[in-house]
Structures are given as C-alpha cells and as structure tokens.
Design a binder for these strands. Structure first.
Lengths: 237, 237
DNA sequence: TCAATAGTGTCTGTGAGACACTATATC
DNA sequence: GATATAGTGTCTCACAGACACTATTGA
C-alpha cells in the first residue's frame, strides 16, 4: 500500500455515457446541460466519478438509471474505450471510461435524480455544435462503434421495443447508417438470418395500411453473414 | 481542484499489455515472471502504472518498448478495454486499461530495461495454467478480439514481417483461429481482396520447393467481404 | 376505390467451399 | 526423377442487389 512510487499518477476516474436512440428517423443522443463549471451551460454527455465502492460497470449503470430513469439492466450497455489525454478536463487529471448504451425511443428522459436537464438531441446537430470536454470525440467514437456493430451483430433490436415490426427495424438501420435500404431485400435478410428475430404471432395496426407482423429479439447475438452497410468498394483490376 | 467529493475513488491506473505473436504454428503471448509480491514468481502480463505526465497510450507504448526492446511505433497497438473489479489487485484499488499488441515473430524478447524475465509462451498453455491477478481473463478477451479482427480487418499482416508469403499469412490465420484452411481458396481470397496485400516483385526460397512470391501490406484496413472464420451455422427451417 | 403500408418472387452476379492438376525449386 | 512447396482453374451453391406485383387495412 505504501509501495506508491511518486511517479505514479493518482487520479479520479469517470464513467461517461453515450446513450443513443432512434426517433423520427434520426439517431439521437442523450445530453445534459451542465450546471457547474467548467463548461457551465454547455452540453455534455452524462457521467460521473467512479466511487470507491463500485466498479466501472456499476457506475455506468448507476448514471444510466439516474439520467434516464430506466433501470440499466434493461438497456444494452457496453464499454466503449478509455480517454486519458492530459488536458481533457480543466479540473485536473481525469481518466474517463466511456460506455455505449442503446435504447428504444423512450417516452421522455426524466430529468434524473440530480435534476440536471437531460434531453434527446439529434447526433447530427450535436456533432456540428460540439460538446464540453472531449465529449465530441467520444460521441464520434460511439457512433462509429454503433454503426459497425449493426453490421455483424443483432444489436439493432436494442433500439426497438420488446416487440417491433420489420419496418421499424429497417428504420433503425437507415437512421444509424444514414442510408436507405431496399425493403424487400431487408425483409428477406432479417427473416432468414437464424435467431435474429422471431414472430410473436401478433400484428400491429398503424395509422393506415395492412397490419404488420410483430417480432421479438431472437437468441442470436451475431449476424453471419453480416448485414452489409453499403455497396462494397469493388476491386477494379 | 478541491471539489473532490469524498465518495469519489482516488486510485491508480495501470496500462497492461497483451502482446501476441505467431510462432511455430501457434499463438504465443509475452509474459513476465513476477519478481515482487503479490503473486511473486507467477506469470503475468507486462504492464505498469500510469505516470502523472503521460497518457494511457504513452504508458502502453513505453511498457511495450521496455518489455520487448522494440519501439512501440512499429507494432500494432490498440486499446482493448478497462477492468475495474474491486478485488482484482490485492494492493488496493487499481483500474487497468488493457492494450492489445500484435507482433511478428521477434528474434527473442530482450529481458527489458527492468530486467524482468520476459518470454513467449503458447497461449494455450498459459490459458490452462493461469496468470496472476485477473490477467487470465484479460488474455481471453484479447484473444477473442484478435480472432474477431482477423475476420473483417487486414490485421493478420501485423503478425508478419515487412514482407511475407501467402503461406505465412495463412499460417497466421490457422494459428490464431485454430483451424485449417484450404490453400487454394485462401490464396484466391487474399490476392483478390482490394488493398490487402501487394506483391513486392521479389521471391523467397525456403528449404525446398518452388520459391514463393513475397508480398507487403496493402493500404486497406478492412476486409469486405470479411474472411470467414468457420463454416457458417446454417438456418434449418 | 383509393391511399397507404405489408409482404412475397425472380433474375443475376459475386464470391466462398470443395476439389486436382501444373510449376519450380532442392536433393 | 523424387520430393517439397507454390500457384492456378472449375464447378456448385449461398446470398446480396435490383426490381414489380399482390395483400390487407382504413378513409
């Protein structure tokens, strides 16, 4: 315990969250308006310091529950990566471990127990306007991770509710990737991929048109062959 | 600076390294024999505490240079993930950020400036025998990451030298995945994938047989379509 | 019956898997 | 020429992309 070499940095660690959802055809991120210095009044990612009696996963889950009012156990949550640049926090040396959470389109994020103003904002707008600290970079990394994961995992369903239609699932892919997909090929792909989605036997009636069959998440975690994000760069020999 | 809430953990951070290579048809990992308590005499992953004046990436690169004698700039190095379980280090609260490095079959890892006994060991043997701390789990995560990355990136070449034959590249895939691949299909795949490998125009003579054409790394970072790891689980309707 | 959304079928081209022969070196 | 390794060609099947028609609801 006293083997502490004086060259070793002694520091604080935060768990910050990139909580993504899809609403109205666009990817949104949960941001808070900072009530304290530094960056008072600016938008930032939710997060907080790691406490002495919890792991990073517990801290991330705690922040998730505080900011969204949801119990973190129901949302998909994975570690993104760590950030340790010297100058990233004006308060001193802080290492941040960022987490990526994927959520269905929640009614509205409750303001949270610490009464910070949390709200959904389109990622496009946020990426253009910027965030406090190096949170813009963290958000960019999270978006790229989410885009990649939609290719080779079944995680797109994490953006949907417990039951969902094929159209809703396609909306997720189109919003996250920013592309449009062929409805017929998409339907064939997701219904033929083993364990991706399962019919519930129920249907849902939208405003107009034929009712859509409802599906739930299947047991598979990965998609093989993957869903292809875009037209592949073809070799030209 | 004095806004430190007493609930916040103040702790030390280490950067630990999983350095993988392929030699004699098997994946190997660089391990050190611990000279101090705790876990004196046991094998562990190389690593060390983050210093006050460096980032995690710099700490990882520094450890890499110290342990292998190579300048880290020449090796592939990526962040793996963070580990923060309460009981993972008997000395107290330590959060570790693990890094994954891929190296060609180095002549021999020099003992390093801190004179710790560093050596290559087959991952299979190490996974069976265990490691100090939670390094066994970190190694398992690193291996799974490496296996996955070989599918959809061109990282296999990081295990090879500056120039290499198709056979050597195939040996990498077979060692990392623990499978055997068809030579003819493998050759077609890697030579037709845009930007994966480029012929150098030279050849290399092995002990016997026809000389093999030498290749170098191409500009592509990702493989699409990916290299398939195994026979795909087919849907049975 | 019209508008709106859901669902299905076919054709084609790329590419992976299975498989056998030819080429070029050393001994 | 025997042995060892390198390199290539063909067939088939899975599946992605392009594309148009049918089905089922409410207004």
């Amino acid at each position: 315990m006293s083997t502490l070499d004086r060259a070793h940095a002694v520091l604080r660690v935060t768990a910050d969250l990139v909580i993504l959802t899809v609403r109205k055809g666009a990817m949104h991120v949960l941001v808070i308006e900072r009530g304290n210095e530094p960056f008072h009044g600016m938008l930032a990612l939710p997060g907080g310091f790691l406490r002495a009696d919890e792991t990073l996963e517990e801290a991330a889950g705690r922040e998730l529950a505080e900011e969204t009012g949801l119990d973190g156990g129901r949302l998909y949550l994975e570690q993104l990566r760590s950030y340790s640049d010297m100058e990233r926090d004006p308060r001193g040396r802080v290492v941040t471990v960022a987490y990526l959470a994927l959520a269905p389109d929640l009614p509205i994020p409750t303001a949270g127990t610490d009464a910070r103003a949390a709200r959904w904002e389109p990622v496009e707008k946020i990426m253009a306007a910027g965030l406090a600290f190096d949170h813009g970079r963290i958000l960019a990394d999270a978006i790229e991770r989410a885009r990649a994961k939609l290719e080779y995992t079944t995680l797109a369903t994490a953006f949907c509710g417990d039951s969902f239609t094929v159209s809703e699932l396609q909306d997720v892919y189109e919003a996250v990737w920013g592309v449009s997909l062929d409805r017929r090929n998409f339907n064939r792909k997701v219904t033929h991929a083993a364990g991706f989605i399962e019919p519930t036997g129920q249907k849902r009636q939208s405003a107009a048109g034929r009712p859509a069959v409802l599906y739930r998440r299947g047991p598979a975690a990965t998609l093989s062959p993957p869903m292809l994000r875009a037209t592949i760069d073809r070799n030209v020999d």
